[in-house]
Write a protein that binds this DNA or RNA. Structure first.
Ligand code: FES
Ligand code: FES
Lengths: 136, 136
DNA sequence: TCCTAATGATACTATATAGGTATCATTTGT
DNA sequence: ACAAATGATACCTATATAGTATCATTAGGA
């Protein structure tokens, strides 16, 4: 059971790297070498982060990516949402076949509590705090 | 993001039905009609519950399934484990390629907290309490 | 100005997991 | 003996995850 997919995990690593960089723009090639993430996949991930407003980008020579806002304003929850949609632990397993049991389903209540807790924790973690944790 | 798969959801419904039944043995056919779960799939689910010791079964005519222990001794967590393995929200996304970052991964700490909370909640819910919730 | 290094957009492929079926053997009450 | 049930097991299909590939576009610098 995974709360975090590989996209998200890679994204966090790349973002930490970008946050810590002193360069103006950080390129995919640089990140690939530093992190060992397959380049094409990493590119897709960075493009998504750009579209969602977490990264700014520059095309052309010397181009690359940079944080669109300070690291303390980027939440782990924001990053998760880009790749995994809304955090919704209590999602009905029959979401697509309109479910007749929504109001009486014996699981929803408990799952909702867990979801709320998860949202609270994930919303409290910023990219900045994730970077601080590094020096173990 | 799903904490509960369809197997588990079906299992919970079937178990509630079995718990409430006054018959000695409850058959797959009866449950199929009552719950609208595809029979072959339901059979697989019940067989798994039997193997894992949550249900007892009887073969032959008038056979079927019955709870192996009182409803208050069957935890939601037990049921989840049968179909989804251990609840492990903080599972490393690179589980199969031994992960070099286990000790320094910036996500593990937070995910672990969420996992602990989930375990605590799910471990507190019994089949009996799930049945009680029904009469909304 | 042209070349090159970069991203943007988008389509495609591969693999794993979830969800579901099907079949035959075995058991048991009537 | 027969019918009604489960046991064991193999298989299939759809979807989601993970990853690749390609061409177009942009911008800096020799
Ligand atoms: S199955 Fe639809 S709400 Fe629980
Ligand atoms: S990626 Fe392996 S521990 Fe975080």
């Amino acid at each position: 059971m995974k709360l975090i997919t590989r996209d998200t995990d890679y994204a966090v690593r790349a973002l930490r790297e970008i946050a810590q960089s002193k360069e103006k723009m950080v390129s995919t090639v640089y990140l690939e070498e530093k992190l060992g993430i397959p380049r094409a996949f990493l590119r897709k991930i960075l493009q998504l982060l750009q579209k969602s407003g977490i990264l700014d980008s520059a095309k052309g020579n010397q181009g690359g990516f940079i944080l669109a806002r300070p690291a303390q304003d980027i939440l782990l929850l924001d990053i998760i949402k880009v790749f995994q949609g809304d955090v919704c632990v209590s999602e009905c397993v029959f979401l697509k076949e309109p479910c007749s049991q929504k109001s009486c389903c014996p699981l929803r209540g408990e799952l909702k509590k867990i979801e709320n807790y998860a949202l609270e924790r994930l919303g409290a973690v910023t990219l900045k705090s994730l970077s601080a944790n590094t020096r173990k």
